[in-house]
Amino acid sequence: MARILIVDDEPDLRGIVRLILELAGHEVVEAHHGAAALQRLAEQRVDLLITDVMMPVMSGSELIDRLRADPEHAKLPILVLSASPHAVDRADHVMRKPFEPTHLRRVAANLLGANAEP
């Protein structure tokens, strides 16, 4: 089981991703923008970060830039989940909204590594 942090300003979207990943056996924590995500990461270790791009206070792009510049989180697997068609540099994978639940599960599993799959 892995702990996954979902960062999205849409609560409904966070709820959907949470459900998909919890059904796959993962523990899910949430943040509603980039700044809140940094706070979460300071409090607890996570194995995968799934983030939106367009968010108030701190965007997903800025969040990724900060994490990559931070030695503690530089190698944290990051999946971008966005309605924007523009790829985000330094993310490990980019998925467009709307997405297929099975596709999300598969990509999350790949990023976590085969051992992380329950």
């Binding site: 300003d9 791009v53 367009m54 968010m55 108030p56 206070v57 309605a83 924007s84 523009h86």
Partner: peptide, 19 residues
């Protein structure tokens, strides 16, 4: 479509209010 996330950011207001 190319404007989304580049020229236009759609942001969720409740996230701002929560914080």
């Amino acid at each position: 479509e190319q404007a989304i996330g580049k020229r236009i950011d759609f942001l969720h207001l409740p996230a701002l209010i929560d914080s």
